[in-house]
C-alpha cells in the first residue's frame, strides 16, 4: 500500500513538471513577494517616519497580519484548493478513474498519493514567498516572523488539503463549486461569527496560533479587551496544534470511506 501511494505521488509530481503548472507554482511563490514589495516601497521613508513616528508594535502587527493573509491563508488555501479538490473529479472527467480502481487498493492509493503531492506542491512556494518576503518587509524581528509563518504554513496546507480532498471525494462532479462555497461560507464568513460554530473552522485555530506565536497585542484603547479577543478564544496553543494535526488523518479516513462506498462509474450517467 505504501509503495502504491509512493508510485502515485511520484507519478503526479512528474506529471506536474510542465510549463503551465510551473508557471502557476511561480505565481503562488511570487505573488506575496510582489504585494509585500509594493507595500514596502510605498511606505513613508525613514526621514518622514522620524517626523511622525509609528509605534514598532503597530508595524509588527501590520506585517504579521499581512503575511498571514498572504501566505498561510491565500497561498495555502488557494494552492490546496486548486490541487487537492479535483483529485477524483479530474480522473473521472478524463475517464482514467476505472484504470486506477481495478488495481489492488488503487482508489485509496490515488487519493492518498494525490493528497501528498498536493501538499508538497503547495508548501514550497509558500516557503519561498516567506523567505523572500520577510526580509523585504523589514518587520523588526524577521526571524521570529518567518518561523511563526513557517509553522502556520506547515499546519494549514495539510489541513486545507485534507478538507478539499474530502469535499472533492464527497461530490466529485461539483468539487470546485463545493470547495469554493465551503471556503467562502465557513472559512471567511462563519469564522468571524463570535459563536461556538467558528471553532469548527481552520481559520479559528490558525488565527489563534498567529496571535500566540507572533505575540500580537489585542488590547483595545485603555487596555480593555478588543472584539478580536472574542474571535480568538482562550484555548492553549497545544490544543490548536493538536486539532490541526489530527484533522488531516481523520478527514482522509472519511475520504477513503466515501471512496470505497461510492460508485464513480461513468456508465452511471451515460452509456449503460
Amino acid at each position: 500500500m505504501i509503495g502504491n501511494v509512493a508510485a502515485v505521488f511520484l507519478f503526479e509530481w512528474k506529471r506536474a513538471l510542465t510549463l503551465p503548472r510551473m508557471a502557476w507554482w511561480a505565481v503562488l511563490a511570487l505573488f506575496p513577494v510582489f504585494i509585500v514589495g509594493v507595500i514596502r516601497f510605498t511606505m513613508p521613508d525613514e526621514a518622514r517616519r522620524a517626523m511622525n513616528p509609528i509605534p514598532a508594535e503597530q508595524i509588527w502587527n501590520f506585517w504579521a497580519a499581512m503575511f498571514y493573509a498572504l501566505i498561510p491563508m491565500l497561498v495555502s488555501m488557494l494552492g490546496t484548493l486548486l490541487w487537492a479538490t479535483p483529485a477524483i473529479s479530474a480522473e473521472l472527467e478524463r475517464r482514467s478513474w476505472v484504470y486506477l480502481t481495478v488495481r489492488p487498493n488503487g482508489g485509496t492509493a490515488v487519493l492518498l498519493g494525490k493528497y501528498l503531492a498536493a501538499v508538497t506542491w503547495v508548501i514550497p512556494p509558500a516557503l519561498i514567498g516567506l523567505t523572500i518576503g520577510v526580509p523585504l518587509a523589514d518587520t523588526g524581528d524577521g526571524w521570529r516572523m518567518w518561523w511563526a509563518m513557517v509553522r502556520l504554513v506547515c499546519l494549514s496546507c495539510p489541513a486545507y488539503g485534507a478538507i478539499y480532498l474530502m469535499l472533492g471525494t464527497l461530490l466529485p462532479r461539483r468539487a470546485l463549486v463545493l470547495a469554493v462555497a465551503y471556503t467562502l461560507i465557513f472559512e471567511l464568513v462563519i469564522r468571524f461569527i463570535p459563536a461556538v460554530i467558528n471553532k469548527l473552522t481552520v481559520q479559528f485555530r490558525l488565527q489563534a496560533l498567529l496571535v500566540e506565536w507572533c505575540n500580537l497585542s489585542l488590547a483595545g484603547p485603555g487596555g480593555r479587551p478588543s472584539g478580536v479577543q472574542a474571535l480568538i478564544g482562550d484555548e492553549p496553543a497545544w490544543q490548536h496544534v493538536s486539532i490541526l494535526l489530527l484533522l488531516p488523518p481523520v478527514l482522509l479516513l472519511i475520504a477513503v470511506a466515501i471512496l470505497r462506498w461510492s460508485e464513480f462509474s461513468a456508465s452511471a450517467e451515460s452509456d449503460v
Binding site: 509503495g3 502504491n4 508510485a7 502515485v8 507519478f11 512528474k14 506529471r15 510542465t18 478524463r94 475517464r95 482514467s96 478513474w97 476505472v98 484504470y99 486506477l100 488495481r103 489492488p104 488503487g106 492509493a109
Partner: peptide
C-alpha cells in the same frame, strides 16, 4: 482515459506499480 502528456511506457509502468 489515457494521460495525454505521459508516454505509453510511463503510463503502463505506473499502472503496474499500482498492481504492487
Amino acid at each position: 482515459g489515457l494521460y495525454a502528456g505521459v508516454s505509453g511506457f510511463d503510463w503502463v509502468r505506473y499502472l503496474q506499480q499500482l498492481q504492487g
